[in-house]
Design a protein around this nucleic acid. Structure first.
Lengths: 210, 210
DNA sequence: TGCGACCTCCATACCGGTTGGTATGGAGAC
DNA sequence: GTCTCCATACCAACCGGTATGGAGGTCGCA
């Protein structure tokens, strides 16, 4: 009973680290079992198939990352603009770790499954969209204060932020170094301060131009 | 004699399309052979191994893309700023095709090979860096005219552009739709026009602030 | 001109290792 | 006794890669 869910959790965690390092197709069931210290019998007791595992791993990942970002300091800032810029700053800060520790499971997964594993693709899309929706809420609030008249949509900015991150991860992997990612986030921050200007002379102003 | 290199080229082309659709690990040698209409005997006559094939496929890809961008109209614009913005515009225009037709082989490849296949990782890094170097040349020329005093480096902007593209590809795959990618490139264009302002009052000016 | 040696290119058959998945049975909690 | 949890043993399919041999072109030479 005490070890009941322990094996399952260990398998999910091994799946996360292994897939983030080697991708989905190159990750074998046995590799995950070995890393988790359990046997295949245990694996197929908890998961119907390899695809079932990866779908649960995506769920697991979503809960994990939601928790990380919800508990971070920047999320408690009263000003929504600070929360948006704080998010980017937070991402910058964790770039000091190993490459496989700051990259995104969903981005890695979807690249090699989007055509062959529709359920995995949908799960990744769902996970990324949810994360961006939370980010978009802050952007919406910040826009209402700092750029009420701007023509861009908050959601498109949420996706833009996420795209810069995902693209930066690719270069971090290509170079085995996070410096390009850091530089990219500095550019991203510069853009965000441009479209959310701090010198708010328009806070309560009404928009005249359509 | 006439069919000599034909098989090799067909194998390389099948490799490109298959890997872009399913990734490296999920692509089998036989799948590539079937798609190319040749047998495994032919495959292993032209390539020592699967990894040898993919390395040559990266070379093949580099030659192909270099050619595409060199021959495009935007590359002939006299103003370097027009060439930089034209590059983004060109990328926007080709988003109308199938997802697997506008995404990048190197970005897909490096995600799943960066830890397990060092030679492939290096080849991808090399290919992307070369592409960015050509882009950076135009950015450097544009900066000298439109933003000589700005503190950003042209190379970092080249990488930023490329990161936005790579990240956009991931979302195009996740959603099986290019709309997010389009929106991202519009944001990218907005940023580029911000850091390369058109109202050049500083063209021949000397930079006073360090 | 004819002939034989040799070469490139590739088709077929095959192999050893690995993979995702199954069948079975047993240990311990309730 | 029955349930959950899992260890062992096993399997059929598949994978990258090899061995072999043959079709057809080329070159040297008498």
């Amino acid at each position: 009973m005490q070890q009941q869910a322990a094996s399952q959790t260990k398998l999910l965690q091994s799946a996360l680290t292994t897939i983030r390092r080697k991708g989905y197709a190159a990750t074998t069931v046995e590799t995950i079992c070995d890393a988790a210290g359990v046997t295949k019998g245990s694996f197929f007791h908890h998961f119907r198939s390899k695809e079932d595992l990866v779908l649960q791993a995506v769920e697991f990942w979503n809960r994990f990352t939601d928790d990380v970002f919800a508990k971070a300091d920047f999320a408690k800032a009263p000003d929504p603009r600070d929360r948006v810029l704080g998010y980017v700053e937070f991402r910058l800060a964790i770039l000091d770790r190993e490459v496989s520790d700051f990259t995104c499971l969903l981005g890695t997964l979807v690249q090699e499954t989007y055509q062959s594993h529709p359920a995995v693709r949908a799960a990744c899309d769902n996970g990324m969209s949810g994360h961006i929706a939370r980010l978009t809420a802050d952007i919406t609030a910040a826009k209402a204060i700092y750029a009420p008249c701007a023509s861009w949509t908050p959601e498109s900015v949420g996706y833009f932020i996420q795209a810069v991150l995902q693209g930066s991860f690719i270069f971090a992997k290509a170079k085995l170094d996070a410096q390009v990612a850091r530089d990219n986030l500095v550019h991203l921050r510069a853009y965000l301060t441009t479209i959310l200007p701090n010198d708010n002379q328009g806070g309560t102003e009404t928009c005249r131009i359509q």
